[in-house]
Write a protein that binds this DNA or RNA. Structure first.
Length: 572
DNA sequence: AGTCCGCGCGCG
DNA sequence: AAAGCGCGCGCGGACT
């Protein structure tokens, strides 16, 4: 039975009954997608027998408080949206606990994308939801019969869906991951609502200098080409070159005309041919500046919210097939590492940003998961794994000091070989990422020595290659059946376990937030940044460190978790 | 005008 | 025997 509630007395009666339910379906309709600017029009709540459609233009949100925090489990599809709206509109009341049908389905099918409520209803319940009213005018004074009907139908499928998803989770032995992801939703709402402050003046300076640099380098490129071709200079003394330097197709063609035939124009290829023509070095410089201008240019600032004046990025809780999060509009996870860029992200005045990251977390996880006794030993003795690896590869005693370049070489080896890189790949990887020259036969030799030193890793590779499904330590799965998926079979459980640990850290922050007046503002795979009042900086740093150690610590038992932490007014 | 894809590159 | 992995975004170019 559908009950359309348009006054406060009816709402209070409904809430009094609903608090005794163990779980309720919950959905909202809003006038738009922005929780800061837009309004909640309807809150639909379903039980096995009834559906309440509450008109929030006539009922104050606080009436629902007894239902939101504590009380029944809120079953929601894409709960970040609904809980985020309720959180913003109520000034800090979080819907909790949550069972998110979208996130749960994603854990089950383990791909990096989410599915709609319509798709789930069709597949699991054989119900065709009519989404015709989804984008109708929810701000209208009088809602139509079909709008109310639509709103109710959406809420009605949630409880049946939950039960089916839960059964499947048990069958797949994946309930721990489902529980982790559902507990995480409030923390993500919290972080997204917090946002982060951008110093637009500093950013503007960076944009200006990148733009000037790009213009200058483009001129130099054109001049350089003019010198080396018959095109020469035009009547005005300008280079008569009409190549678009942002077009790989045109650049490749031009270089070919200049006698440099290359497969592609990516950085490593150009770098390898740097000596072939003076234009190549200029092009590499231009590419650097052009990237700054295009991806980190003036458009980027448009993400500052007009009302909060902060950046509220869109955090995608399961953003990859391994279980990592992703981030968009804007992507806070691929900002240049240069201090100049990261310093643009500043705490509010009187506050600080505290940045903490896990040290070599994937290697630590690999050591434990494989397991590899020698690698584990290096970690629990607190030694530097890259130096240890260098010693083994060079046949030196562990106590002897290795040079910096030897350590660089070993770093490339550790990162590459653990995840199944071949000799050819290792040699170019070392060159491109660590500026270490390594011939292919040399790489092959290093590879052999590496697996002699770390036989646990070698055995683990063989074990993984025979699997058709990988699991993180918590149990997050990914189906990888092909021979071609070899390297994914190595990477997924490691990358995924690191993601699980970081997610648990975020959960712990949320669930112990009463300890410190602070909140997370961003996270980058092995790093969490929080904002805290300056006078609480030390306390907040300890809190963050503890949550991160405890979170990852549930998965890393035999190898210590190391968290590096710094506190400044900016992120840099 | 809008849509889609490959390339290239920023980050972990 | 051989095989690094995971994202989002801006651009050019081809297509409708």
């Amino acid at each position: 039975m559908i009950q359309y509630i348009t006054d406060i007395e009816q709402a209070i009666v409904a809430v009094k009954e609903l608090v005794f339910e163990s779980e309720i379906g919950l959905d909202i309709e809003t006038t738009g997608l922005d929780p800061i600017l837009d309004k909640i029009r309807l809150v639909q709540i379903s039980t096995p027998l009834n559906t309440y459609v509450i008109d929030m233009y006539h009922v104050p949100l606080s009436v629902l408080n007894p239902l939101l925090t504590g009380g029944p489990i809120k079953v929601i599809h894409n709960a970040k949206f609904d809980a985020g709206f309720l959180y913003a509109a109520s000034g800090g009341v979080m819907a909790e606990p949550i069972f998110d049908t979208m996130i749960t389905d994603q854990v089950l099918h383990h791909r990096g994308y989410a599915r709609s409520l319509k798709d789930l209803s069709k597949e699991y319940l054989d119900i065709d939801l009519d989404k015709g009213n989804q984008t109708s005018d929810w701000g209208a004074e009088h809602l139509s019969e079909s709008q109310i009907q639509y709103a109710a139908e959406d809420a009605n499928v949630l409880l049946p869906l939950k039960h089916i998803l839960e059964e499947k989770a048990v069958e797949l032995q994946i309930t721990a991951v489902v529980s982790l992801e559902n507990r995480l939703v409030p923390a993500i709402c919290w972080m997204e609502r917090s946002g982060v402050n951008l110093d637009s003046n500093l950013w503007g300076e960076l944009v200006k200098s990148a733009e000037a640099k790009a213009v200058r380098l483009k001129e130099e490129l054109n001049l350089s080409v003019a010198e080396h071709t018959s095109s020469g200079l035009d009547l005005f003394g300008n280079a008569a070159v009409s190549v678009n330097w942002d077009s790989p197709t045109q650049v490749k063609k031009l270089l070919s005309d200049l006698g440099v035939k290359i497969e592609n124009t990516r950085h490593s290829t150009l770098e390898a041919n740097r000596g072939e023509h003076p234009v190549i070095a200029l092009l590499l410089d231009y590419r650097g500046a052009a990237k700054k201008v295009s991806t980190y240019g003036t458009d980027w600032e448009k993400h500052v919210h007009p009302k909060s004046r902060r950046i509220h990025a869109n955090w995608v809780q399961i953003g990859s097939a391994t279980g990592r999060m992703s981030c968009k509009n804007p992507n806070m996870q691929n900002l240049p590492r240069e201090a100049a860029y990261r310093n643009c992200f500043r705490a509010a005045s009187g506050w600080v940003l505290i940045k903490a990251d896990y040290e070599q977390i994937e290697l630590r996880l690999a050591a434990e998961i494989a397991p590899d006794v020698r690698m584990k030993k290096a970690f629990y003795e607190g030694r530097d794994l890259h130096s240890v690896t260098a010693s083994y590869l060079l046949g030196k005693p562990e106590t002897e000091v290795v040079t910096d370049s030897q350590r660089q070489m070993a770093k490339a080896v550790n990162f590459g070989l653990i995840f199944g890189m071949g000799a050819k790949g290792l040699s170019s990887y070392a060159q491109n990422n660590f500026r270490v020259k390594m011939e292919e036969h040399e790489a092959a030799k290093i590879r052999r020595r590496y697996f002699e030193a770390y036989s646990g890793i070698k055995n683990w590779h063989e074990l993984q290659s025979r699997k058709r499904e990988t699991r993180t330590i918590l149990g997050r799965h990914r189906i990888l059946e092909g021979e071609r998926d070899y390297t994914n079979k190595l990477n997924s459980p490691i990358q995924g376990s690191a993601a699980d640990g970081l997610k648990l850290a975020l959960i712990k922050l949320w669930e112990t937030r009463h300890l410190v007046n602070a909140y997370p503002v961003l996270t980058v795979h092995d790093e969490i940044v929080i904002e805290a009042p300056k006078e609480l900086a030390e306390k907040a740093a300890e809190w963050l460190k503890r949550c991160m150690e405890d979170g990852m610590g549930e998965f890393l038992q035999e190898v210590p978790v190391a968290v590096d932490i710094t506190s400044k007014e900016s992120w840099g």
